[in-house]
């Protein structure tokens, strides 16, 4: 599904990622853990295609295709989804409008007919029902006045509607209390499927109590320092990142 090979990335001339190798198979859930400043968010943004990052070496292969030359919207159309650490508020644009524009843009990309308003509402209602999200959230402006938990649930709803084959969850647990964390994790678990891979980026182990990963990677100082099973997360919880953090100022 996702193959990252020897990826080097710089921002304003500073090398942030110093040779990342990562392989995520279909249906697998991987966690990437690391201390602040280790390059976790850079990695998620680079995969999604954000401007401002210079790839100085390596490749990002998604479903057999090198993504590095593609626009963010093209990557999304090909089945990539990034759940934001800080979802953006867009006043004056209703959540439904946003979701419908996004879904129809992706459908157009694949030469499929756009959904009309009725078809769309039917489809999105089914998703909100499955995820236990109130329809009220659809009418409101995108993320405006949403609580931290609502913003993250909205990310999960977008994921459900756009149905990506790879979802990257960037610090989805940040800013959530334990109840919100449970609700969001339940949503993510409902979307787990053999056809969908997930990469969960987090600083803390606690999210992984609810979303149990197949593999855990430790990212520190711009490199994957260690890879293991879910027990690695527990070990990190106990010992912290000190072991890997030596090189980080």
């Amino acid at each position: 599904m996702l193959e990252i090979k020897n990826l080097h990335v710089s921002v304003d001339g500073n090398e942030i990622l110093k040779g990342i190798d990562l392989s995520v198979g279909p249906g697998e859930v991987h966690a990437i853990m690391g201390p602040n400043g280790s390059g976790k968010s850079t990695l998620s943004h680079v995969i999604a295609g954000r401007d401002g990052y210079e790839i100085t070496g390596g490749r990002i292969i998604f479903k057999g295709e090198d993504l590095t030359g593609l626009l963010p919207e093209e990557r999304a159309a090909k089945g990539l989804f990034l759940a934001f650490q800080y979802p953006v508020e867009i006043p004056g644009v209703a959540n439904t409008t946003f979701l419908k524009e996004a879904l129809n843009a992706i459908r157009r990309f694949h030469g499929e007919d756009e959904l009309d308003a009725l078809q769309f509402v039917k489809m999105v209602r089914k998703k909100t029902e499955e995820l236990g999200i109130s329809d009220d959230m659809l009418k409101r402006a995108v993320n405006v006045g949403f609580s931290g938990g609502e913003k993250k649930r909205n990310e999960i709803l977008q994921m459900a509607v756009l149905n990506p084959s790879l979802a990257i969850l960037d610090e989805t647990d940040s800013g959530l209390d334990i109840d919100a964390l449970k609700i969001v994790s339940e949503g993510v678990n409902k979307l787990r499927s053999p056809d969908r891979s997930m990469v969960i980026i987090t600083h803390y182990q606690r999210l992984l109590d609810y979303i149990v990963p197949d593999k855990v990677h430790v990212l520190a100082n711009g490199k994957i320092q260690r890879t293991g099973g879910k027990e690695l997360a527990l070990e990190l919880e106990e010992k912290g990142y000190a072991e890997f953090d030596g090189a980080v100022a």
């Binding site: 295609g49 954000r50 626009l71 919207e73 989804f81 934001f84 953006v88 843009a105 992706i106 990309f109």
Partner: peptide
């Protein structure tokens, strides 16, 4: 915000 919208597939 622009990246957010584009990352959802909006040109």
């Amino acid at each position: 915000a622009l990246f957010y919208l584009r990352s959802r597939g909006i040109p």
